[in-house]
Design a protein around this nucleic acid. Structure first.
Lengths: 228, 228
DNA sequence: AGTTGGTCTATTGTATGCCAAGTTAATGTC
DNA sequence: GACATTAACTTGGCATACAATAGACCAACT
């Protein structure tokens, strides 16, 4: 009797309930525009447990993780509150972002291979200045994408890891006019200069341009975004 | 009838079992010199629960936090393993450290008041070059202290928060000859130059010196420390 | 009407039991 | 004796029950 050779793929391991709960809650928070209204936003363990159809334990573990990452705050016997970052905290986050991304630019200009740099050039050329005027909406994501590309190319996963968290927080306030038209236009110019510096392997210049570019965003937020 | 005015202080809130378990386990790991031997170091939920006299739940929450911070790794149905960082990971951590501390130096040279800078000068003067030859042992901590002072003075709590985690990891391998005599001597010189640049409010120079100083440590580890 | 103490409810913290999936040791077969 | 098989044990994941406390509500009393 021949043994049937079923062409089956290995069953991918099911992620733990904790992991799934974590993603579910986190993405729900991201889609919420938490800075839109003023009232305190609360999470309810048991409510989530019922809606997700699992027990409180994995929910608690997921929420505990979100607490540690600074997305929610657990107050014993009172509740779990979604955190709105203060202006000072956003300010600090963008500062850290600037520090890490400028280091990434430094690493790239020293170590990246030409293929990567070509791809970076393609990314920035894709958005010419007049196109952007029409579709600023898309720009916000393209902007983030450019920054993430630089960071990934640095070959330092830890930098990616840290900045991913920062981007998440910053993205939550994007509708508060962070990436407006004039800034978008100016950003394209900055990005082109950055790529040019990297292409020229001018480490110091690349680092400085990246830092200044992000610090300009910081100052913009400082000046125009109201949060507290 | 008068109301008695009892002179009482508010009852300080007792930290949760989770928080206490977290500190207990973390400090135990720190004191362990995990890089000393080769065997896999495992944690046991039930064992800890018995030894600490509490149930598994707060233990699990504490361990989950340590897992997220990168101190242990939870492998389902196998065990909880204390993590030894690879050389590449240490390398990345020091890179991030350099990026953040050089940003801190930048912020200080722009914004710190003269009192703070005086204290920084005192800190570095305290360890003259010949003293250090005698007590290199103490130097390691004084070294870290100097760096932490710079970071704290930056006025950016987020930078402190991130680097604290990095320091914890790096400290775990300090006995692996990271801070040896010749390096210690050279470090003092570097530190003095850094303070001088800050005193002169020379932002670019301060940033560069701090970065280069930490990157030298990175290269030193790269060259002399064996981990994997 | 206002205050005061009790009670009830909502909500998180903790303990404990069970389960599925590995690990290890014992056992049986050749 | 070597190897496959199975049984016992380990271990983290998850569910559930109970405990503790903050805050709302309420009734009684002044």
């Amino acid at each position: 009797m021949a043994i049937a050779e079923l062409n089956i793929a290995p069953i991918k391991e099911t992620p733990s309930l904790k992991a799934r709960a974590y993603r579910a809650i986190k993405s729900a928070i991201l889609e919420m525009n938490i800075y839109a209204d003023e009232t305190d936003l609360r999470l309810d363990e048991r409510g989530l447990s019922q809606r997700l159809g699992i027990s409180r334990t994995p929910i608690r573990e997921a929420i505990s993780q979100l607490d540690q990452e600074g997305f929610v705050r657990i107050v014993p016997r009172k509740g779990i509150y979604i955190i709105r970052k203060t202006k000072a905290e956003i300010h600090d986050m963008i500062t850290v972002w600037a520090a890490l991304e400028s280091m990434a630019a430094r690493l790239i200009s020293k170590g990246a291979d030409d293929g990567d740099i070509k791809r970076l050039r393609a990314l920035v050329d894709q958005f010419s200045q007049d196109e952007v005027a029409a579709k600023t909406g898309e720009y916000s994501d393209a902007n983030i994408e450019f920054h993430q590309a630089i960071i990934r190319m640095s070959g330092c996963p830890l930098i990616s890891e840290i900045t991913d968290g920062l981007f998440f927080h910053v993205r939550a306030i994007r509708h508060r006019s962070i990436f407006k038209l004039d800034r978008a236009r100016r950003s394209i110019v900055d990005h082109k200069e950055i790529v040019a510096a990297i292409e020229a392997r001018d480490t110091e210049r690349a680092e400085r341009l990246v830092r200044d570019h992000t610090m300009k965003l910081r100052d913009h937020v400082e000046q125009y975004v109201e949060l507290d």
